[in-house]
Design a protein around this nucleic acid. Structure first.
Lengths: 216, 216
DNA sequence: GGCCGAATAGGACTATAGTCCGGTTGACTC
DNA sequence: GAGTCAACCGGACTATAGTCCTATTCGGCC
């Protein structure tokens, strides 16, 4: 049942990613030029000190083009992260356990994976993703107040956690609210501060400690 | 020992609040004008749709004056919150249990208060404070990336939590990192999203669930 | 009560995110 | 291969946070 719901959702995300059907040749060319230029500038000067003007200039396009296609700073960051983020989502939906669901052999139910194990696997995988691209994730989440919670990806992580928490039975009272609380600890802004304060390893451990709430 | 450390810190905060010694009469007059004007505009039009220009104009001062005194948007918000925030800090340092320390009767140790009770009392009191002024707290935390973690107040809350977690013995591995994680759930940005999504009561309950980590 | 150094006031100035609209170009049809 | 129309392009334009420099004002002191 839960898997069905999750798969349905994946189709939704799929549709959201490919708006209508076509893209004009010049638009595609410019999209690539912009993404390449942005990646280069970000790598060379650091994400936060590159202005949108600079990206447009380096890509050889006008500001109108840049903003029309990506919406705003956060959208540009999201586009750059798209590939990695999607890989993580695919691994969750259909990859091997414990991050993904139990393997679906031809026989009905394979080995069951404890939801709490999947919870911790998610925390680990998400931290790998976020810490590797912290500046970009931060840019995508903090460009505008509340941006993080309007991101399509946030909805995905949230639903995944809700499903896992619901599978844990009565240990978790309010899975919806609890999922939000768990995601708070994975916010880029917070991760950045925590890493700066105590380093990656201790930050990671602290995240797992919070994710134990549900297990208790 | 811990109380001694906490008291010493309070003195630090005290000193930070009263920079050198004096304030010129015109400066004091203008500070009041600005705070009044800002409070009025914020109440009438909502915090996020009031520009700093508008505040300066309504207060009848120049932009230079406004920014010189308060630094930036976040500083203005912090100044408006100062009174409430300080009341909460005082209650934590010297108020009645369980939010404050155990009452210090003339006889040595009064009734001991369990650290976990103080932890939950803090969560409640902080939520009362933050939810009552959510827009302002949010403005003080999100004006600039990472602003929240540079705020003096953040350091205060963090130290308070570290002290309580340390008092809980071996249940908590890394009190410093754990305190950061707990505070993540109290971030204004996150609280706003959570309240919008599930309402105040469920948000409050979820915070307490996370604060149980330490108790487990 | 007038003088002098220092802090303050104020508004012109810069930098940057994001909007708008007239002109251009691409894709599809006949 | 020319015509048509929507989508796209680009840069001028707006709004806003924050900076800077000069004239003013304060307040202690003679």
């Amino acid at each position: 049942m839960e898997r069905g719901a999750a798969t349905g959702r994946r189709v939704d995300l799929e549709l959201m990613r490919t708006p209508p059907p076509k893209e004009r040749a010049d638009a595609a060319r410019n999209r690539v030029k912009v993404l390449d230029a942005a990646a280069g500038l970000f790598a060379r000067h650091g994400v936060e000190s590159v202005s949108m003007d600079a990206v447009a200039a380096a890509a050889g396009v006008g500001k109108g083009t840049l903003f029309r296609r990506f919406g705003d700073r956060a959208g540009l960051a999201a586009a750059l992260l798209n590939q990695r983020e999607r890989a993580l989502q695919d691994a969750i939906l259909s990859g091997p356990a414990p991050l993904g669901p139990a393997p679906l052999g031809p026989s009905e139910a394979g080995e069951a994976v404890a939801p709490s194990d999947r919870l911790h696997a998610f925390a680990d995988a998400y931290l790998d993703y976020a810490l590797d691209h912290l500046s970009l994730v931060r840019m995508s989440e903090t460009a505008t107040p509340g941006a993080r919670y309007r991101l399509g990806a946030y909805g995905f992580w949230h639903r995944h956690l809700v499903i896992l928490l619901d599978q844990m039975g009565d240990a978790v009272r309010d899975s919806e609210a609890s999922a939000h609380a768990l995601l708070a600890v994975l916010g880029a802004e917070h991760l950045a501060a925590m890493v700066e304060s105590v380093g990656r390893d201790r930050a990671r451990a602290a995240v797992h400690t919070v994710f134990d709430v549900a297990t208790a």
